[in-house]
Amino acid sequence: MTDYHDSQDSYESYDSHDEEHGMTRRQLMRHAGWFGGAVVLTVAGGEVISHIAGPRGTDAEAAAFATATGSGALRFVQVSDSHIGFQGPANMDVAGSFTEAIRQVNSLGFRPDFVMHSGDLTHLSTAGQFDQVKQMLSGMRTDRVFTVPGEHDSIGDAGRAYRRTFGTGTLGDGWYSFDTHGVHFIALVNTLSLEKLGHLGNDQIDFVRRDLAGLSSDTPVVVFSHIPLFAMYPQWGWSTDDALKVIALLRRFSSVTCLNGHVHQLFTKTEGNITFHSATTTAYPLPRPGTAPAPTPQVVPARQLKHALGIRSVGYRQGDRELAVKDQPLT
Rank of each mutant, 00 (worst) to 15 (best):
D3I: 09
S7I: 05
H17N: 04
E19N: 05
E20W: 08
G22T: 02
M23I: 03
R26F: 07
G33P: 14
A38R: 12
A38N: 14
V39H: 12
A44P: 02
V48E: 12
I49G: 05
A53Y: 03
P55R: 07
P55T: 02
R56I: 10
E61P: 01
F65L: 10
T67G: 13
G72K: 02
L74Q: 01
Q78T: 04
I84G: 05
I84L: 12
G85E: 00
G88H: 00
G96Q: 04
G109W: 01
P112A: 01
D113K: 03
D113L: 05
S118T: 09
D120Y: 13
H123G: 10
S125R: 11
T126G: 09
A127R: 15
A127W: 15
Q129D: 10
Q129K: 09
D131I: 01
Q132G: 06
K134Q: 06
K134F: 12
L137R: 01
S138I: 09
S138E: 12
G139R: 06
M140H: 03
R141T: 00
R144I: 12
V145F: 04
V148C: 02
P149V: 03
G150L: 15
E151V: 10
D153I: 09
G156V: 07
D157L: 02
D157M: 08
A161P: 15
R163H: 01
T170L: 11
D173L: 14
Y176W: 02
F178M: 05
T180P: 04
T180R: 12
G182N: 00
V183Y: 00
L188Y: 08
E195R: 13
E195T: 13
L200I: 05
L200S: 00
N202L: 14
D203P: 05
Q204Y: 02
I205K: 05
R209K: 10
T219E: 07
P220N: 09
H226Q: 12
H226L: 08
L229Q: 04
M232I: 13
W236G: 11
G237K: 00
T240A: 07
D241L: 11
N260T: 14
Q265K: 09
T270R: 04
N273D: 07
I274T: 07
T282C: 09
Y284K: 08
Y284N: 04
P287M: 12
P289Q: 13
P293G: 06
A294E: 13
P301T: 11
L305Y: 10
L305F: 15
H307W: 11
A308F: 15
G310H: 03
G310M: 04
I311K: 00
R312A: 04
Y316K: 01
R321I: 10
P329K: 06
